[in-house]
Design a protein around this nucleic acid. Sequence first.
DNA 1: ACGACTTTGTGCGTACGTTCACAAGCGCGT
DNA 2: ACGCGCTTGTGAACGTACGCACAAAGTCGT
Lengths: 246, 246
Amino acid sequence: MSESDAAHCLPAASAPARPRTDVPDATVARLPTYLRALHALTESGSVTISSEALAGAAGVGSATLRKDLSHLGSYGVRGVGYEVEELALQISRALGLGRRWPVVVIGVGHLGLALAGYGGFADRGFAVAALLDADHCRVGGQVGDQVVRHVDDLDAVVRTLGVCIGVIATPASSAQQVCDRLVAAGVRSILNFAPTVLRVPPGVDVRKVDLSNELQILSFHAHRKTTLSLVDDIRVVRPLAGEVPA
Amino acid sequence: MSESDAAHCLPAASAPARPRTDVPDATVARLPTYLRALHALTESGSVTISSEALAGAAGVGSATLRKDLSHLGSYGVRGVGYEVEELALQISRALGLGRRWPVVVIGVGHLGLALAGYGGFADRGFAVAALLDADHCRVGGQVGDQVVRHVDDLDAVVRTLGVCIGVIATPASSAQQVCDRLVAAGVRSILNFAPTVLRVPPGVDVRKVDLSNELQILSFHAHRKTTLSLVDDIRVVRPLAGEVPA
DNA sequence: ACGACTTTGTGCGTACGTTCACAAGCGCGT
DNA sequence: ACGCGCTTGTGAACGTACGCACAAAGTCGT
């Protein structure tokens, strides 16, 4: 970084100075992992940690970690490392976890129930503000401290509770319809568990989690490993199959 | 591709010819999406499809799709497109879905139940071969057509049923231990839902799905959008606005 | 007070992924 | 039979991400 501007001469003032405009997506995707490791370190009583150690805990290279942290203008101390609590705070702020985000979950099937009961949300600043379902048999049911409401209330729920994030846990057949309703209600961040490619207008972020996709990717590698080892066996032991080694 | 070898003069013979060694990870990650789109097309009765249309259905650019398919030596017909059924078969084979993969799920909490009840597995060639849990209260319970067994049976289950893929749906505290047991039993592909970085020896593939991470990534973008739009409002239109129409 | 050691922050080279643009190939109409 | 238009497959350019290696910067010991 060229030091031609005087923006970060002061060590750590109250002014954020940098609107931290350009954080690479790959970095953002790793920040939660760092944050989790830092929280574990806090509980274990560590005060400072080196990039090497933290990178080890997060499963990345130390250079990658340092570059990631540099993107959000983090402050480490040379010769010492990073202060655990301070760094956790910085990452939390960068991720926008300063506030508690209300989340609406649509679809109270097995997965929706799992999401509603997942304690990892509350720990990280997310709160399941409402559970919605299209099935009248499920509407009115109690899940944790929430009552399942009908999906037609979506618009009211979003506006009343100020929901910014929607989680789609419906069957694929109704996912797009639910997505459209979310977008119409003003939700611009959607986490999609339905196995469908959602069509959204620009400005809306969609992240997709597809369990079946993950298994298929694993299947590919498992299959490849099996095949390759077979090929190796054939090639090494008996060289008379009708094929040419690369 | 240089046509210096005579390997694929014949349109579609029984010989696989290409061991398809190097398929980029990014491509592999997209193949399941293509496959799903193709299955939908099959049911809608389409016989052929152009790269443009299929790419649209999968949410990627057409050039990316064509390059992806070229990596697994796919056969399209110039001027026409891809034959839906044939292409689905090719992708299935590339993903190693020719066989039915037995999967063991460890952890029968909310998430484990969701996984066990998820119909998307059976459709794609995966079968939940066993459900395991460490809690004696859950062991012996019936889930679908499976009886929950104790996690100590893991080794026996893996060897008896020939399990190649393990799914960890336990709390984070026991995830590493379960992972070690899976690896010791010979499982080399693991899907991890626990919020922990798993340590595995080389040769073992781990894919991680972390719900909280996904929400935090969404939170980052939501936060950034809010901040930026506020800045824009102040800078451009009205210094005291509440909300921005899209 | 000063030097040596430790660790951060980052320029740079490399590898990868994505997109563009176009030639090669195939079917179809005439 | 032949050319025309359509679509694939791919070379090339661009942008991004990762890792190395080192200078800057701070602490600790003496």
